[in-house]
Design a protein around this nucleic acid. Sequence first.
DNA 1: CCGGATCCCACACGATACTG
DNA 2: CAGTATCGTGTGGGATCCGG
Lengths: 136, 136
Amino acid sequence: MNQRAEVTSFSAVMAQVDGWDSDNCPVRDVISQIAGKWSTLLLHALSDRPYRFGELRRLVPDISQRMLTQTLRDLQRDGYIARTVYPTKPPSVEYSMTPLGHSLFAPLSKVLQWAQDNHEQVKAARLAFDGSDLAR
Amino acid sequence: MNQRAEVTSFSAVMAQVDGWDSDNCPVRDVISQIAGKWSTLLLHALSDRPYRFGELRRLVPDISQRMLTQTLRDLQRDGYIARTVYPTKPPSVEYSMTPLGHSLFAPLSKVLQWAQDNHEQVKAARLAFDGSDLAR
DNA sequence: CCGGATCCCACACGATACTG
DNA sequence: CAGTATCGTGTGGGATCCGG
């Protein structure tokens, strides 16, 4: 896709990783979904066991029902979670993680773990940066 | 932070993973930065070798110079990349990945790899979802 | 060559009220 | 209980012009 075929080692890797012409980048197509504010949180919850709507709502108190519904819908749309309706009275809906979801969450959880482990370092880096030259 | 102390297996994991009261979630504090549209792309580039500003601009043709500057600045602020100015004529600036950046990119690259490998499955899931019941 | 400053828009997200 | 509908806002990101 590079008209002048920049044969750096990077562009080779890039072509391999991205598909890559402009906007229909496969990686971003997938990442942009799970990069939402609540997606990783819900994936993390459902990686443990299935949950009902109200349970998730209680587990994540500061999510609005709008975003809970929407995020669950998007995750279901991408095939990461499954939605099962039990016609009880009143009706209950259970969300569970699919094999695809688990296969995604395996590497994803490593990143979340990294974020947790290195949060202090990142905060320190920000302080150092903001307090120094380019601070302004 | 759960007033009623929901002792599900999830909440235990959650407390461990998140810190977790509401908005100053460590995980999201870190993730929201690297979830930007261009962050992973630039991290990926710089994981290979250092690059100059103009090189990155050519490697990622569809990024605006505004977002290139801003994303690089943010990545530097979080300590993932280092900025080195060579007072040549005209001046050149080199960006390189720090050890912290490499330690982040190790797990992150696994997720990118997953996204690449499973893009087709995700697209298929979307088609199936859009074409079926909830399609509306 | 490497940016900063400004204008602008789309969209993710939140708050609230209403339904089956 | 498990959502849908509507409205309002903050901000991530693009386009363009200017500066060292």
